[in-house]
Each structure stands twice: as C-alpha cells, then as structure tokens.
C-alpha cells in the first residue's frame, strides 16, 4: 500500500471529524461527562499522594530529588491524559467490534481499518484533570530545578512525549489484536493495564533487571520515564538512540501483527 500525502491528509481530517462526533456525543450525555471527570480527578489525587509522600520525606531516593520526582509524576500524568483521551475508549471497544461484526462494515470503507478502530472515539472527560495537573507539575518542577527554558529543551521534551505516545499505542494495542484469535484477550490486556501502575514511580527505584525489562522488552517503563529522563539530563547514548528507535520498532511490530491478523480474520457468523 503506497502512502501518499493526500491519503495522510484525509486521515488527519477524518480524525478531527471523529473527535467532533465524540464531542457531540458528550453534549448529548452531559452526566456521563461529569461522571468521568469526577472519577478521574480522584484517581489523579491518589497518584499525587505518592508525590506528596516524597516531598514529606524530603530525601533523594536512589539519587532522585523530590523536585525531579515531580517531573516524573507530571510526565506520567500527561501520558495518562494522552492515553485516556486518544486510545483507551477505542481499545476497550475493539474486541466488541469483532464480536458484533461491526468490524465487517468498517472493513469495506475506503479508509485504513487500523486507523478507524484506533481513533474512532476521543475521550474528553478523562484527559482534562490530568492534562491540567500534569502540565502544572512539569512547569513547576522545571522552574524549581532551574532547567533552561530554551526552545531546544522544550522541543526535545515534546519530541520525547511524542515518541512515548507511539510506544504507548503500540504496547497497548498489540495485546488487543489477540482478540482475533481468542475472545478472552481481556485478561492479558488487564495485566498490561496494571503494569502501567509501575510508572507511578520513576524507574530508578526498580532493580536493574526490571528496569531493562521495562525499557527494552515490554516497554511500559519507557512511556513515562524517557521524557523525564531527558529533562533531568540522565539520557546516555544508548537511551538517546533508543528514544528514536523504540517507537519505529514497536509501531512496525504492531503493523505487521495487524496485517497477519486481518488476513486470517474470519468474521463473526450471523
């Protein structure tokens, strides 16, 4: 399949229409929106408790100061906003599309099927508290740590966030694809979802083996740590290369797996 500029433009445009439709849906069900907002705010608070605790303790933990910890927690919170906003709803729905056969309908549309199942819904309730709190934390810590607010630093940080976003998508979408073979892909996804909790703390509190596993094999730790590691200047050569390679590799893996799965697809009967 050749990728042309017009095709990319069309898909970007489609994304905004999907987002608009999701927003219209929220206007229809305001209670759902507020419900989601309240819920996510409480979850945010429970994550902030870790940070609060570290500040109370006031010591460096494995060489990470409380202010640096705030960078990590802030980035983690921003990544949660991105994940819940763009991906979560779609991933939860995916197995249902196969079961109900709606995937059949999507398949006949002149639009990338993977794109359609990945971005059909945008969540507006969950990311709001996370985005506000996350950005506040990062800005606050940025100041307190006297990091030069240069364009280069900012661009680098945003670049690292983008790289993490791609990795998040790949790591969490991959187990979803298993739904093509087994209905019970739920538990695998659940466990991976819980793995995400490992990001509550910077990877430096974990032993080396777990850190390596989480960075290079199942890159869940990659997601929140890389942008923060870049900001607190702990990026070494290997990690510096990996930050570029990981998103490309993981996205390729997901795409390949998707192609194999879709070829073997035997649509739900009925």
């Amino acid at each position: 399949m050749s990728i042309s500029v017009t095709e990319i433009r069309k898909h970007v445009r489609m994304f905004f229409i999907f987002a608009k439709n999701s927003l219209l849906g929220y206007m229809e069900y305001k209670a759902n929106f507020y419900s989601g907002l309240i819920m996510e705010t409480v979850f945010l608070l429970s994550k902030l408790i870790y940070l609060f605790f570290v500040f109370r303790l006031g010591i460096e933990i494995n060489g990470i100061s409380p202010d640096q910890m705030m960078i990590f927690t802030g980035t983690y919170t921003i990544m949660i906003a991105i994940y819940t906003g763009l991906f979560m709803d779609n991933f939860y729905r995916f197995a249902g599309h196969i079961r109900n056969g709606t995937l059949d309908l999507y398949m006949t549309k002149p639009l990338s099927l993977q794109f359609m199942v990945s971005f059909r819904k945008v969540n507006f309730a969950f990311p709001i508290p996370n985005l506000i709190a996350g950005i506040t934390m990062v800005v606050l810590a940025w100041r307190r740590l006297d990091i030069d607010p240069s364009f280069l630093h900012l661009a680098g940080y945003i670049g690292a966030i983008l790289s993490s976003t791609v990795v998040t998508y790949s790591v969490l979408f991959l187990p979803q694809i298993l739904a093509f073979w087994t209905v019970k892909s739920g538990s695998i996804f659940d466990i991976l979802d819980k793995c995400w909790d490992l990001n509550n703390m910077p990877m430096y509190i974990y032993p080396k083996w777990l850190r390596r596993l989480g960075l290079y094999v199942v890159p869940v730790l990659f997601i929140t740590n890389m942008p923060s590691v870049y900001l607190i200047e702990r990026l070494n050569v290997v990690l510096g290369i990996w930050i570029f390679v990981a998103p490309v590799l993981s996205l390729l893996a997901v795409r390949l797996f998707w192609k194999v799965a879709i070829k073997r697809y035997e649509s739900a009967s009925s």
Binding site: I59, I61, D197, N200, Y204, I205
Partner: peptide, 16 residues
C-alpha cells in the same frame, strides 16, 4: 503490581 511498586519504593527509601 501495586504491592510490587510499594515494596520497591520502600526498599529504595530505606536504602537512601
């Protein structure tokens, strides 16, 4: 997983 994070955290805290 939560317990795991907790244990690693406390190990790191007590060590530091």
């Amino acid at each position: 997983f939560i317990i795991l994070v907790q244990c690693f955290l406390w190990t790191a805290v007590f060590r530091s």
